[in-house]
Design a binder for these strands. Structure first.
Lengths: 347, 347
DNA sequence: AGGTAGATTACAATCGATTGCAAATAACGT
DNA sequence: ACGTTATTTGCAATCGATTGTAATCTACCT
């Protein structure tokens, strides 16, 4: 910038004002400076600017792993909203490391970013202190039991709806493969599942809940355990699509057909849910909208710290595809080991 | 920091040195300052620090979309290496917007980050100038025809291997669903596919190439076109797993069984490749290693700008699973519209 | 011609760290 | 007791911007 100032024969303050489009600098001079800056390939140093202004116009999304397909579109939504309001978005991956989460969170204190969006429920205590403060909003998972504004869906209601769908198809022995113990949303989905069974007057002992951790492998393992039960469930509601996929694969491995022998309902409607075979019946979360809403809340609050960010709940939707079907009461149904007429499955 | 200095009755320079662990400050004083800093909950302002030192110890990964499952583990690899060398990692999503890509790239100039890792081949011209410079490495896709150090696999060789696998299973009419036109890796994979056919003495006209764009939908559309051909291919090699999944779904929609009626080989070995039904035979890319290697190259170069970063090629691996099988020569095979004995597919 | 409002531009402080060099203090030998 | 060296600490400049206030300049009015 000093370069440009010298070139234009003015002081750096004038250059700064000219580049900022201030009316305090003569229009002709403004054009001249803009031209020189262009020629020089000058770009303002955001670090210096950030130091002076004490803000970066950047927000940071912290998530456990970028590999989780649920997050992709959430990030997109955040970016749409942020961009339209002049903010940039960065994504930080903790890989489950508390240390890394802490390092990322520090970016808020150090002025590198103006706000934080958390896509995880478990955060190190050092971050709690931070999150309790300000300029932080969460998506999907409530952060511990902190009072962080959260954008989510009605997880219990959605789980109730998913289970009711299965009940409506005639199923009575409906199992549940739950999310990671300790997760808030996992608990809410269990509660919704139980509520639906109770509302249908089904005894608790006919409902079976097995814990998973949202991964394909955990769904497979959980399903294997369910299939070993003396009296096998005819349907299973999974707290995540990956676990539903794992469950279906486990059923296939036993020669069971989905949905003919076993109905499966997932949760999240991840991008692959519609491409999987069979196509997954699942609860759709408005991921992009959730991202937008969270970014909106956060930026509102950054731009006007007076206004506290409220929590928001967005509508979900049951998407009926092909992995859950009406219960077949014929005696041939539900064989212990189903024949596999297609012959092409598994290996 | 001034606070701490006052509290400890020393100057800020002493505090700075104490916190940096300099031997120039008395051990006792160092402990005292560390304690006070801890009590105050002080964290150094990285923006100010970055301005003074002209480096941030952060690197930025720029990718087209975080939703692409290929990238997840690459990012993990980058993070592992970066963390072990004292660098932080941020991820920037362009969503295909050149404007956003440019804004992200500027972070290098402005000192917000010390280096860039590009996971995309197409970058705006404004970024080209930048990329041509320094402190930039690419993964997988070569950047335009710029001389940016690149970490990749032997795409042509891998494609040749995949096609040879199909040839080895007895297939002769092998189609190819290619990646996005203009993509470097797509072109290399086409070349490898052609080379394999040529080496097997198969006339070019028996090879059919249809363009896709790496998405599930494009694979589905491409396969539909291939199945409309007067003489249908018995196998297809897809330049990406998502397209392979789309192709398989298109085949199912026509009542064809995979691999009984159609063999499919993918590319990338994305996380879902093993969970899909049928499990995908595909080329595995060492994603995590690629991330590590790229980060290593970049940081080597940042830490010692003398040393130019070389390109590196990592080994790939053909993973044989269940989506490709030996060609069935029986007359019943390859019906125009296959019966669907399982009855549970599609909807 | 003198004065003044209005338009431009420059000066200098500031953001929060780091660091070379000078200054102060302590320890020690003679 | 004094000079010398070793150890600590402080001063002040620096990184690259922004901005309140002062200074300068222009032009116009009387």
């Amino acid at each position: 910038m000093a370069d440009i100032a010298q070139r234009a024969g003015v002081s750096v303050s004038t250059v700064s004002r000219a580049l900022a489009g201030s009316t305090l600098v003569a229009p002709e001079m403004r054009r001249r400076i803009a031209r020189i800056a262009g020629d020089e390939g000058y770009v303002v140093n955001q670090v210096a600017r950030g130091l002076r202004l004490q803000r970066s116009r950047q927000i940071l999304i912290i998530l456990p792993t970028i590999a989780n397909p649920f997050f992709g579109e959430v990030v997109l939504g955040v970016e749409e909203e942020a961009q339209s309001r002049g903010y940039g978005v960065l994504v930080g991956n903790t890989s489950g490391s508390a240390e890394r989460a802490e390092a990322l969170g520090r970016n808020l204190h150090t002025g590198a970013v103006d706000g934080l969006i958390l896509l995880m429920g478990r955060i190190p205590d050092s971050l709690s202190a931070l999150a309790a403060k300000d300029r932080v909003v969460a998506i999907s998972e409530r952060v511990h039991d902190l009072d962080v504004p959260t954008v989510s869906i009605d997880n219990a209601g959605a789980a109730r709806e998913a289970t009711a769908h299965l009940l409506g198809l005639g199923h009575r022995r409906i199992a549940h493969i739950a999310g990671r113990p300790g997760s808030n949303v996992a608990a809410q989905r269990i509660a919704g599942y139980r509520a639906a069974l109770a509302a249908a007057g089904i005894a608790a002992c006919d409902g079976v809940v097995v814990d998973g951790d949202f991964s394909v492998a955990s769904g497979e393992a959980a399903m294997a355990r369910l299939l070993d039960l003396p009296v096998r469930p005819t349907a299973v509601f999974c707290a995540g699509d990956e676990m539903a996929i794992g469950a279906i694969n486990a059923a296939h491995a036993r020669g069971l057909r989905v949905p003919a022998d076993l109905s499966v309902v997932g949760f999240d409607d991840i991008p692959f849910a519609a491409a999987f075979n069979p196509r997954l019946t699942t609860i759709h979360q408005p991921r992009r909208e959730m991202g937008r809403a969270a970014a909106g809340l956060l930026i509102d609050h950054i731009d006007d710290p007076q206004r506290p960010a409220p929590s928001r709940q967005l509508p979900h939707r049951l998407v009926i595809r092909a992995s859950a079907a009406a219960l077949d009461h014929s005696p041939a149904a539900r064989p212990l080991v189903a024949p596999d007429p297609a012959g092409g499955r598994g290996s």
